[in-house]
């Protein structure tokens, strides 16, 4: 077996795929850098990310499996799962070996099916984040939100927020992965920040616009009033809003 490692980026992964074919390597395994070592006999290589090579792979795959197919590959990478590259590479090999058909439609192929499942999970998380982001208006007139999604979906939700909130500055920050996306009324920008200690709610209050806590409180009032107690169904409720998301949901956080 031959091990290729890459830098966790989509471009890095495509560069690795390129090298696997360029060097005609047999039994290739592609893994993220920095993961625990596995025993390999035929050697290993740290692939350096190369936009030109990545682009060629991207174009080729898109021609073979269409927009939706390539989207499945990218979504699967966003799961950040340790073994996802194995299934993805498997599908890529399958596609390259069968250029006449769109193999993504072959749901009887285990790796194709796996990618469909990954895509579904990432898609659901994307949808959830588009729903669960809760902006707070800060003193400097930026609508700010923290998130901690299960998968790395920030890059694929930014577009939604950009088309919706065009006349307000906003920043969505992924606390788990320590980066955010900022919209300055013109363009999107990636922002890296390290918070050096745990988030403190009372201190955070000083950063907020005066009316902000009032609107949060109105939202909580609304949320409580719109519930019909006679129909209470917590099982269904938790299915839709699992507890791990409550941390940043205004309606689930007690009043200041």
């Amino acid at each position: 077996m031959y091990l290729l490692t890459y830098d966790h980026s989509v471009e890095g992964f495509f560069s690795a795929v390129f090298e696997a074919y360029e060097r005609k390597l047999k039994n290739v395994v592609i893994r993220k850098q920095g993961l625990p070592m596995v025993l390999f006999t035929d050697g290993m290589r740290r692939v350096s990310t190369n936009p030109r090579k990545a682009e060629r792979v991207y174009v080729k795959l898109k021609a073979l499996m269409g927009e939706l197919g390539i989207q499945k590959i990218i979504y699967s990478l966003l799961t950040e799962e340790e073994l996802c590259e194995g299934y993805i590479f498997d599908v890529i090999k399958y596609a390259l070996a069968n250029p006449k058909v769109n193999v993504m439609k072959d749901m009887s192929h285990p790796s194709v099916l796996k990618l469909a499942q990954y895509t579904k999970s990432v898609h659901r998380e994307k949808h959830r984040m588009e729903a669960f982001v809760r902006f707070k208006l800060t003193c400097d007139d930026i609508y700010y939100a923290d998130i901690e999604p299960d998968f790395n979906v920030l890059p694929i939700i930014a577009k939604h927020f950009k088309s919706r909130y065009q006349d307000q500055k906003w920043l969505i920050f992924d606390q788990k992965r320590s980066y955010g996306i900022y919209y300055d009324l013109y363009k999107l920008e990636i922002i890296q920040m390290k918070f050096n200690r745990q988030y403190n709610r009372e201190e955070g209050l000083e950063m907020l616009k005066k009316d902000e806590p009032l609107y949060q409180s109105l939202w909580r009032t609304y949320y409580a009033q719109t519930n019909i107690r006679l129909r209470k169904n917590m099982r269904l409720h938790l299915l839709h809003v699992p507890k791990r998301y409550w941390k940043y949901l205004t309606e689930k956080i007690p009043e200041y």
Binding site: Y223, N227, I228, R229, R231, N233, H237, L239, L249
Partner: peptide
């Protein structure tokens, strides 16, 4: 988009 769900499990999408 359902932005939240009430405790009765219904979608909260609109004010």
């Amino acid at each position: 988009i359902c932005h939240s769900y009430t405790e009765d499990g219904r979608c909260v999408s609109l004010l």
